[in-house]
Amino acid sequence: MNIFRLAGDMTHLLSILVLLLKINATRSCRGVSLKTQELYALVFVCRYLDLFTNFISMYNTIMKIIFLASTFTIIYWMRFHKVIRVTYDREQDTFRYQFLVLPCLVLALLLNSEFTVMEVLWTFSIYLEAVAILPQLVLLQRTNNIDNLTGNYVFLLGSYRALYILNWIYRFLTEPNYRQYLVWISGIVQTIIYIDFFYYYIKSWKNNEKLSLPA
């Protein structure tokens, strides 16, 4: 494990902590996309099936369990918590799951490194993660008054992806025969999706203004 990978994982962990904290402290999930959270839950479930079949390291196992548990906690709060669920922007969070899930599934069936259930589901999770942030970005665009913490959450998630790219470059340069084209391409697509958000996030931070995304 290199420093970029560790920093990426920690940023990912921090992003989820920020989101848990925001929802729990303000008792509000305003501006948070349930669709994105549910897509992430699907991503984690499909990718971490190897929790049952393949032990990699204690670090790996613990992180996987944290990502699964925290995402399901957020979904539970947004759907069922009697105070929090009322604050969910149901009418604004209208992105359709099938537009993301179906193309990713078809792509995973066609483009994978081995045609087995585990491998296809794993590949599906890689493709789906790349686009799972889209409902959240659309919702942010529709939210007039973006909460600082919600903005920070998306910024941290994007930073995690950028750090993963540095991790791949490092691994490519230091590990012989290290190649994973499907993961790289998906990861680059995923990071590109954040560029527009980054631009407005940094601009608002520099000008000391509240973050807002133009429609």
């Binding site: 990978r5 996987k64 990502f67 993961v183």
Partner: peptide, 10 residues
């Protein structure tokens, strides 16, 4: 080979 190796990433 690399299939197993890439699975160590989260």
């Amino acid at each position: 080979e690399s299939v197993a190796e890439e699975k160590d990433e989260l």
